[in-house]
Each structure stands twice: as structure tokens, then as C-alpha cells.
């Protein structure tokens, strides 16, 4: 199996901008599709990137999504500048959310974002500093 990197790029996400929410994940999905990545890998990458993007928009001032695609795996690194997460274990619990009522009314903030990111990636790690920001690293491997 080849280890060569097929794509390496950064995407900026603006905090609070729900209007453009989803654009970066849509671009990333199209990039992976164009690279000819396995469709299950593309599907899972789109899901986790969308959730990451929505988290940045909902909570952070700004964030960066770093996509690195290899022939048989995708690595997605998220880093944001924002409030950070005080209790990561609690934040990882499905259904737990600190989203505002307005964000919830739109159907976001269901407390499924981080859980979905973990569920659809093969490798998931998260670190955070309160009042500084949060970093998430996810890897998605081709199944067959």
C-alpha cells in the first residue's frame, strides 16, 4: 500500500456564521470524491467534518480544519480558538450540550456532535484548554 499523500490542505471556519455552515465539509467531500477515495471513507469524512464545522460555528471564534488524504486513509485535524471544554468526558456523552436556545431551535446542539465524530472515525482524540481552544484529531481508514 502506498503511503504517499494525495491531498494536504487547510480550511478556515468562521465562528458564529451559520449562513456558511457546511461549506467546508461540502468542499472536503468533493475533494475526496475527486481523488477517487473509497465511498464509505468519503461518507464518514463528510459526517465528522460537518460536525466539527458546526461545533466551530456554534462555539468558537474561529477554527481551522486540516485535511490530509492518503490512498487508504484520511486524517482530519481540527483546532479552534474559543471557550474550550472544561469536562471532556461529560462533553463526549451523547445528549450533553451547552448550546444556546437559538442554536437548538435550528436543530443543532443535540449533544451528538462529538459522539458522532468518535463513532464515524477509526481513531479519535480530543484535547482542550479552557478559554483557549479545542483540538480534535480523527483518522478514517479504508475498510477493505
Amino acid at each position: 500500500m502506498s503511503e504517499e499523500t494525495k491531498y494536504d490542505g487547510h480550511f478556515a471556519v468562521e465562528g458564529g456564521n451559520f449562513r456558511n455552515a457546511g461549506q467546508v465539509s461540502s468542499r472536503i467531500k468533493n475533494i475526496l470524491k475527486d481523488l477517487g477515495c473509497d465511498s464509505d471513507m468519503v461518507r464518514r469524512a463528510a459526517i465528522v467534518t460537518y460536525e466539527a464545522e458546526i461545533n466551530i460555528v456554534s462555539y468558537a471564534r474561529k477554527g481551522l480544519i486540516h485535511l490530509r488524504a492518503k490512498p487508504d486513509s484520511v486524517r482530519i485535524e481540527i483546532s479552534d480558538e474559543g471557550p474550550g471544554i472544561a469536562d471532556i468526558e461529560l462533553a463526549m456523552q451523547e445528549g450533553y450540550s451547552t448550546a444556546s436556545p437559538i442554536v437548538r431551535e435550528m436543530g443543532f446542539g443535540a449533544g451528538m456532535g462529538l459522539a458522532n465524530m468518535k463513532r464515524f472515525s477509526d481513531n479519535f482524540s480530543i484535547t482542550s484548554r479552557v478559554n483557549e481552544g479545542t483540538q480534535v484529531v480523527m483518522q478514517i481508514d479504508q475498510v477493505h
Partner: peptide
């Protein structure tokens, strides 16, 4: 109506 639910569980 929960977007995370739709993202995770709907099919093409």
C-alpha cells in the same frame, strides 16, 4: 429535526 441525527443516520 435534529441535524446531527440526519447527518449521522440518513442514507443517500
Amino acid at each position: 429535526d435534529l441535524l446531527s441525527d440526519v447527518i449521522a443516520n440518513s442514507q443517500e
